[in-house]
C-alpha cells in the first residue's frame, strides 16, 4: 500500500507543492534531451550513409573538444581554433574513409563495426599522446558563450535558467535543423539518401561513395565538436566525457537508427524521462542514482515491443 502511494500519489503531491522544482526539472530535461539528440545525430548520420554503427562517436566528442582547447592553448584565438579544429575533423573524416572504410567495402557489418572500435582506441591513444590525459577547462567565455543566469519566480520559488544552458539548447536545435535541411534539401543530401537506400544503385548513377562518406564523417565530426563544447562547458574536457555519449544508445533505440526526427524525439523523451523519474520516483523508492540506467530500461522495453524504434524503418527479411 505504501509503495502504491509512493508511485501514484506522493510524486504528484510534490509536483503540486513545488511547481518551481517541476518546471526546473522539465527545463533540465529539455536541455539534456537536446544534447542527447545532438550526440545521437552523429551516430544516425553515419549509420544512414554506410550502415555502420560508429562506436567512435563518443571519443570523437572528446577528441574534438581536446583539439579545440589544445589549439587555443598555443595562443590561437578561439574562433580561429574552432576553424582549425574543423579542419582536423575534416582530415580525420578523410583519413577514416580512405584507410578504414574504403578497403572494407562489402565486408559484413560486424567487420565495419569492429573497425570503429579500432578507431576509438587510436583516437584515445592519439588524444592522450598529443594533449595529455589531464582534464582541461572548456574555453566557454573565449567562444562568446554566455555565462550567468536568469531567474523566474513561480509558485513561491524560482526557476533558474543558466544562460549557457539556453545557448546550448538553441545551438543544438539550430545544428539539428541545419543538418536536417542539408540532408533533405541539397544535392549532397539527396545523394546521401540514395547511398543509404542502396550502395550499388547509388554507384550506378554516378554518386561517389567515398565523397558521401567523407561528408557524413565530417558532419559527425561537426556534431561531435558542438556536443563536446556544450557538454564540457557543464563540467570539463576529459576522457570521461566519452561515456556520456553512451546515452545516445537508448536514444537511438527509441528513435530508430536511421531517423533524424527519431534522434530528436528520442533524445527529448530520455532527457525529460530520466530527470522526472529520478526526482519523483527514483529517489523516494529506490534511493536515487536511477539516471544511469533509466534510459536503458526504456530502450530495453522498446527492443522487446518495437525494435525498429519510433521512426525507424521496419526490417523485414525473408528466410
Amino acid at each position: 500500500m505504501e509503495l502504491l502511494k509512493q508511485i501514484f500519489v506522493e510524486p504528484f503531491e510534490v509536483m503540486y507543492a513545488l511547481p518551481d522544482l517541476l518546471l526546473q526539472t522539465l527545463w533540465e530535461g529539455f536541455v539534456s534531451g537536446t544534447l542527447y539528440s545532438l550526440i545521437a545525430l552523429g551516430f544516425v548520420l553515419i549509420f544512414k550513409a554506410s550502415g555502420v554503427f560508429n562506436f567512435a562517436q563518443g571519443i570523437m566528442v572528446v577528441f574534438a573538444a581536446l583539439t579545440l582547447v589544445g589549439i587555443h592553448a598555443f595562443g590561437v584565438p578561439a574562433f580561429l581554433a574552432v576553424i582549425l579544429t574543423l579542419g582536423v575533423m575534416a582530415l580525420l573524416a578523410f583519413t577514416v574513409v580512405r584507410v578504414v572504410m574504403k578497403p572494407l567495402v562489402n565486408q559484413p557489418d560486424i567487420i565495419l563495426f569492429m573497425s570503429t572500435i579500432g578507431i576509438t582506441f587510436i583516437l584515445i591513444a592519439g588524444g592522450q599522446l598529443i594533449f595529455g590525459g589531464e582534464p582541461k577547462a572548456m574555453i566557454t567565455e573565449e567562444l562568446g558563450l554566455p555565462t550567468g543566469a536568469s531567474d523566474w519566480e513561480v509558485g513561491g520559488g524560482i526557476v533558474i535558467f543558466q544562460h549557457i544552458d539556453i545557448a546550448a539548447a538553441v545551438i543544438a536545435a539550430l545544428l539539428i535543423a541545419g543538418l536536417a535541411l542539408f540532408f533533405n534539401k541539397t544535392k549532397t543530401g539527396r545523394a546521401l539518401r540514395a547511398v543509404a537506400d542502396d550502395h550499388q544503385a547509388a554507384l550506378s548513377v554516378g554518386i561517389s561513395l567515398e565523397y558521401i562518406w567523407v561528408v557524413v564523417w565530417f558532419a559527425a565530426g561537426v556534431v561531435a565538436l558542438t556536443a563536446g563544447i556544450l557538454w564540457a562547458a557543464k563540467s570539463d574536457v576529459s576522457f570521461a566525457l566519452q561515456v556520456v555519449a553512451l546515452k545516445a544508445l537508448p536514444v537511438l533505440v527509441l528513435g530508430g537508427f536511421t531517423s533524424i526526427p527519431g534522434a530528436i524525439v528520442g533524445g527529448l523523451i530520455i532527457g525529460f524521462g530520466e530527470k522526472l523519474f529520478d526526482l519523483y520516483w527514483g529517489v523516494p523508492i529506490l534511493g536515487g542514482g536511477t539516471e544511469s540506467w533509466f534510459a536503458f530500461i526504456i530502450a530495453l522495453l522498446f527492443l522487446l515491443y518495437r525494435p525498429e524504434g519510433l521512426f525507424g524503418e521496419k526490417l523485414i527479411e525473408r528466410i
Partner: peptide
C-alpha cells in the same frame, strides 16, 4: 541523505542536483 553518482553519470549530474535542491 545520500546522493549516489554512477560512474557513467560523473559528467551528467543534473538529476542528482535537482534532488539536492529538493
Amino acid at each position: 541523505v545520500g546522493f549516489p553518482v554512477g560512474v557513467k553519470e560523473m559528467q551528467n549530474q543534473g538529476a542528482t542536483w535537482l534532488n539536492v535542491r529538493k
